[in-house]
Amino acid sequence: MQDLGSAFMAAIALVRDGDAGMLAILGLSLRVSLAALGIAAVVGLPLGALLAVARFPGRRAVVVALNALMGLPPVVAGLLIYLLLSRSGPLGHWGLLFTPGAMVIAQAVLITPILAALSCGVLEALWEEYAEALRSFGAGPWRAVPTLLWDGRFALLTVLLAGFGRASAEVGAVILVGGNIEGFTRTMTTAIALETSKGDLPLALALGLVLMVIVLGVNALAQGLRDVALRRAG
């Protein structure tokens, strides 16, 4: 109980003082997660939409595989990226290991299947409604993809938020490929892991509270924008 109390006090102090170190870490966390979300969205959402409209042999297998990849342990994803980006690995010449870029890749790899699988589910329902009309307009599956992505934009926002939540909460992969380097690749989650292992549980918990508040804020903001837009656009 005492620990929880002091964690709250420490969290308030961190925010009140605008602790520069924490703000930098927070900024990096947000930049990395948003960049990963951007990449994952560009790949995952069209993939999900295509899976929702296309009918081809093996489609079910792809959907099952995507659903399974949603549960990919972050450490495994991190390890794969690590081996790829290592100087001994095939992409070693990029020089990305232990940089924020590597963390972006790792998070993007983790959340792309999530975005694809969830958007496929959301857009399948929309496609069921639209399929005849779009075919009547002469739109094939390729043309239907951008239409579904646009018309499903409000539902897809929720999908994006799920991806963002997973990315910003992730620690196993980013600590492996980022190295938790102070001032360079230390994010909120790796800082929490570090403070925990230093035994400073109140500080670790305080950082966790700050992260939760930020993620909550991002969600609230997005939902608010969505509600406004929904009222306008239906």
Binding site: A24, G27, L28, R31, V32, A35, L91, W94, G95, L96, T99, P100, G101, M103, V104, I105, G183, F184
Partner: peptide
């Protein structure tokens, strides 16, 4: 192409103080 992608990724998330 790999290089371009790599640079892009680095640029995306590079802190100013590096």
């Amino acid at each position: 192409r790999h290089l371009v992608l790599g640079l892009l990724l680095t640029g995306l998330a590079l802190p100013a103080a590096a």
